[in-house]
């Protein structure tokens, strides 16, 4: 019957459509349905150039989380808030460094897990940080022989 056909069509449309919407939102947009599944760590950098909210956080080259926000703290340091899933546990003496993928690619945060026994909890600071490598500075130092003079 015609009415049945219409109802079937509408049913399929709504179901598949909602799947498409959810796929977009969750898979592509990274929306979290369960908010309580992550925790945040803070890290202070002297330079976080090129790191934005949404940048990757990697451990050994594997993406594990994202940067939630980048702010300036009272000491004029860059305060980067990292968002990690609860399953990834970071030790107290972990090192956070700003890395670049390729020579001029995206900036991301690399975490090197430490070996200490005490774990970092939600809101804790990572004290050991390595700031962004300033390539221009590096090149100019290399070209003008600044590297040697520093070695003296």
């Amino acid at each position: 019957m015609n009415k049945r056909k219409i109802e079937m069509g509408v049913g399929c449309f709504i179901l598949l459509g909602l799947c498409a919407v959810l796929y977009l939102a969750i898979q592509l947009g990274g929306a979290r349905l369960l908010g309580g599944n992550t925790y945040q760590l803070k890290a202070q950098f002297s330079s976080a150039a090129g790191v934005n909210a949404g940048s990757r956080v990697e451990i050994s080259g594997v993406r594990v989380g994202t940067v939630a926000s980048v702010e300036l703290d009272s000491m004029y340091f860059a305060l980067v808030v990292l968002e990690l899933p609860r399953s990834i546990v970071i030790d107290e003496d972990a090192i956070a460094s700003v890395k670049t993928s390729g020579l001029i690619g995206d900036r991301f945060i690399e975490l090197s897990p430490g070996g200490s026994d005490s774990m970092l909890n939600d809101g804790d600071h990572i004290y050991d940080t390595i700031p962004a490598l300033d390539i221009e500075d590096l090149i100019s130092r290399f070209a003008l022989g600044g590297l040697e003079s520093k070695g003296d």
Partner: peptide, 15 residues
């Protein structure tokens, strides 16, 4: 690149 570039805000704005 598709997966990493799109933020939730983009999708939300589109809807």
């Amino acid at each position: 690149h598709v997966f990493s570039s799109v933020q939730f805000a983009d999708i939300y704005g589109g809807f």
